[in-house]
Simulated scan of single mutants.
Amino acid sequence: MSTPDISSNTMPLMEHLIELKNRLTVAVGALLIAFIGCYYFSSNIYAFLVEPLAQLLAEMGGNRRMIYTALHEAFFTQLKVSFFAAFLIAFPVIATQFWRFLAPGLYKNEKAALAPYLVLSPILFLMGSALVYYFIMPMAWKFFLSFETMGLDGSLPIQLEAKVNEYLSLVMKLIFAFGISFQLPLVLTLLARVGFATSRGLAAKRKYAVVITFAFAAFMTPPDLISQVGLAIPILFLYEVSILSVRAIEKKRADIVEDEDEDDFEETDFNMT
Results as ranks from 00 to 15, higher is better:
254 A>W: 07
253 R>W: 09
228 Q>E: 09
259 D>G: 03
258 E>I: 03
259 D>H: 06
266 E>P: 01
260 E>V: 05
264 D>A: 11
230 G>F: 03
250 E>T: 02
266 E>W: 02
235 I>T: 09
243 I>N: 01
253 R>P: 03
227 S>E: 09
260 E>P: 03
261 D>I: 08
242 S>P: 07
258 E>Y: 06
235 I>Q: 07
234 P>G: 15
271 N>H: 13
265 F>R: 09
267 E>D: 04
224 D>S: 04
264 D>E: 15
261 D>S: 11
265 F>H: 05
227 S>H: 07
224 D>E: 12
232 A>S: 10
236 L>C: 05
229 V>D: 05
259 D>Q: 09
225 L>T: 02
253 R>L: 10
235 I>L: 12
249 I>T: 08
237 F>V: 10
248 A>Y: 12
249 I>V: 10
225 L>Y: 09
237 F>K: 01
226 I>Q: 12
231 L>R: 00
232 A>R: 00
241 V>M: 14
257 V>F: 15
258 E>R: 10
258 E>K: 12
271 N>E: 15
244 L>D: 00
233 I>T: 06
266 E>L: 09
233 I>S: 03
226 I>W: 12
238 L>F: 13
227 S>Q: 07
239 Y>K: 00
227 S>Y: 08
256 I>P: 03
229 V>R: 08
249 I>L: 15
265 F>L: 15
270 F>P: 01
242 S>M: 11
269 D>L: 09
258 E>N: 14
251 K>N: 11
265 F>C: 04
257 V>I: 15
226 I>S: 09
261 D>Y: 12
257 V>K: 12
240 E>H: 01
256 I>K: 15
242 S>G: 14
247 R>H: 15
261 D>R: 14
256 I>Q: 14
234 P>L: 13
253 R>C: 00
228 Q>F: 02
267 E>C: 01
261 D>G: 09
232 A>F: 07
241 V>I: 13
235 I>F: 09
263 D>E: 10
251 K>D: 08
267 E>R: 02
269 D>G: 01
256 I>R: 11
237 F>Y: 07
235 I>G: 03
261 D>L: 13
255 D>S: 10
241 V>R: 07
245 S>W: 13
256 I>N: 14
246 V>H: 04
226 I>E: 08
268 T>F: 13
241 V>A: 14
242 S>Q: 08
265 F>I: 06
224 D>N: 04
235 I>P: 00
241 V>G: 02
232 A>G: 06
246 V>Q: 06
241 V>F: 14
271 N>A: 13
229 V>L: 10
266 E>K: 07
254 A>P: 05
246 V>D: 01
237 F>P: 02
224 D>R: 04
238 L>T: 02
254 A>I: 05
249 I>Y: 11
264 D>Q: 08
264 D>S: 07
234 P>Y: 13
242 S>E: 12
268 T>R: 12
244 L>E: 04
246 V>G: 04
230 G>L: 06
233 I>K: 04
246 V>M: 08
239 Y>T: 01
260 E>F: 08
227 S>V: 07
244 L>K: 07
226 I>M: 15
243 I>T: 03
258 E>A: 15
232 A>I: 05
246 V>T: 07
246 V>W: 01
263 D>N: 14
